[in-house]
Design a binder for these strands. Sequence first.
DNA 1: GTGAAAGCGCTAACAG
DNA 2: CTGTTAGCGCTTTCAC
Lengths: 382, 382
Amino acid sequence: MPSPPPPTARRRAGDGPATDRVRRTGGGPLPRHRPTLADVAAAAKVSVSTASLAFSGAGPIAAATRQRVLDAALELDYSGPNPLGRQLRRGRSGIVGVVVGDALKRSFRDPVSVQVLDGLVGTLGPLGLGVLLIPGPSDPSEPPVDPLVESAAMDVAVLMWGGTSDDDALTALQRRGTPTVVVEGRREEGVTTVGIDDRNGMSQATRHLLDLGHERIAVVTLPFDRSRREGLVDADRLSAIDWEITRRRLAGVTDTGVVPVAVHETPASLVEHGKAAGFSLLSGDDRPTAVVCQSDLLASGVVLAARELGLRVPQDVSVAGFDGLDLPWLAPDVLTTVVQPLAEKGAAVAHAVEDLLAGETPPYRELPVTLRIGTTTGPVPA
Amino acid sequence: MPSPPPPTARRRAGDGPATDRVRRTGGGPLPRHRPTLADVAAAAKVSVSTASLAFSGAGPIAAATRQRVLDAALELDYSGPNPLGRQLRRGRSGIVGVVVGDALKRSFRDPVSVQVLDGLVGTLGPLGLGVLLIPGPSDPSEPPVDPLVESAAMDVAVLMWGGTSDDDALTALQRRGTPTVVVEGRREEGVTTVGIDDRNGMSQATRHLLDLGHERIAVVTLPFDRSRREGLVDADRLSAIDWEITRRRLAGVTDTGVVPVAVHETPASLVEHGKAAGFSLLSGDDRPTAVVCQSDLLASGVVLAARELGLRVPQDVSVAGFDGLDLPWLAPDVLTTVVQPLAEKGAAVAHAVEDLLAGETPPYRELPVTLRIGTTTGPVPA
DNA sequence: GTGAAAGCGCTAACAG
DNA sequence: CTGTTAGCGCTTTCAC
């Protein structure tokens, strides 16, 4: 017959779930499981507060005492203060939740997201902050916000590609009172935003094409909204762009006075969608002489489509992009593009996070872009 | 002269740092900052434990009582239990730390990592677990393990590309007592591992080339170790492969009896390195008739190099890869490759995490691979 | 330079 | 079904 559980296997009310241990009482048995700061303090014959100081270094402590504590810790196989206790006490988790703009798989196929994230993580790390990855909305059928947005421990949140203003994630975060940085979103009251001067950048690229004599210019755009449609758009659709970034980059083109001969909407910034757009735009006889794309991935797809259609770039058609990515597979061509400082953008986001954490309200940060002229744009064909 | 600070601005010893508030005492002022479960309970005139139940649903509670609590929460603008308190009490953070094999920027340029991560996150999410991104070793000059490995709150860790056995991150995690899942590492006692049958997969690809009559077969490999050298390797170097995955995939080739005419080491699984390898291997007169690559990105680089050298694929040279990625820019070619189930691998890792969390020791999981014959391999040139 | 005390906000065992 | 109670492990005044 089963014997009653031994005292140590029986939990007392209020005991934490992972603490099947024997309390250390004067010469009694050693702690059973993970030692705590109290165990270390006892072993080193100092108070817990002193032991705490030995690890945090946040206060005066005698070198010898400190060493005694550290030795005791080593002895007990104590690997430093439990972050959970520390976090609760401090009221801070040290976590920055990053909501990416799409399912990870798709989002990270775009080097733009990846490089910004890299810059962000690289700057946050030395600040002692970690990044919690939160998937963005995937299918329109799925629930619009990941449960992590509602309940994960985070001190600050970052919304990559915070396209729209009625973003569900933003709403949820505001309800929770989590300070949030929005990347590339609409500049809005009470929301910290980091962006780039893409409207102006697009204008520069367009003017470059005008200077080359182009008049029939088509545009390949980023998604208009989460419906992620694909194809040529009419005036109606054109007036219903929900995503700020798409609207702004298109405005950059029209700012120059250009009226695009065609606008092609894509479901995501990916090579294949650029390729599809390229085939669609360049197959007819009245094809444009230049295509301005809202991203480099889209632009490289257009270049590939042109090549497959037997068109020479830039002799038959010029193609410009946006982002300034390295596109080795386009070699020997180098894309004409608007270069944005991706790693710096990540770092700027990190600094905004830092400010928010310090209780400040960082100003809107807009990073500059520059036009890089490559080999994919040339004079309009005679 | 400065007047003494008002009572609410003065913190009592032991007060949390973010809790400048007036305690709710019978009809007194409302809570100043974030309300707590106790505030909600008081407002709903129930005990905190009942209020807790109202949110967690982990216990019997009358629908009416529950509603009262929820109403009170809404009234007080309480957005659910503070995760920090919950975590400490539960002894669980709900966080899985994922150590990627390299700096994020480089790691995520490889769709393999991204797709595995996507599968992992997708499976972990419904389990209520979030992913903390931890950068792997970047430069050999940098400190070998990110501070997050040492001190972030996480219940389990995952080592992507846990190549070697003397991995510093693994050592640190073991010291902390954090259960760890290693992906693609050496199968080792006491370490939970998830991998694929890549050795056998590589053999299949090689046999496919043998069947086509190829005899002069070269190999382009993944990195040998963190030194990440580039170039042809000699016998000495060949016997010093530190990364398990590289060794295993090479063994898959030699298992067939093939002795490669050349082995080219690359610093990372990226198109440009494949291209460099391709130029190096295919430029001479005594070039191989087939090139087996340890990744698809490398293989596509080799294909691009061949094309630029004016070689027809597969008429002049056959190229095989490993991974089964979608490579739209290779079109109209489709790479012959060994397909591994990337999302499933992520899911398998997630299940191993789940087991570890349940206190079980999951068995080694090895996922199958399949050879996919595309258009980049053909009969040996006459 | 060190120690005592007071909780951070929450959950879970148990009694009623 | 609800309330009481006892902490999870830590940091930070404040007094000495």
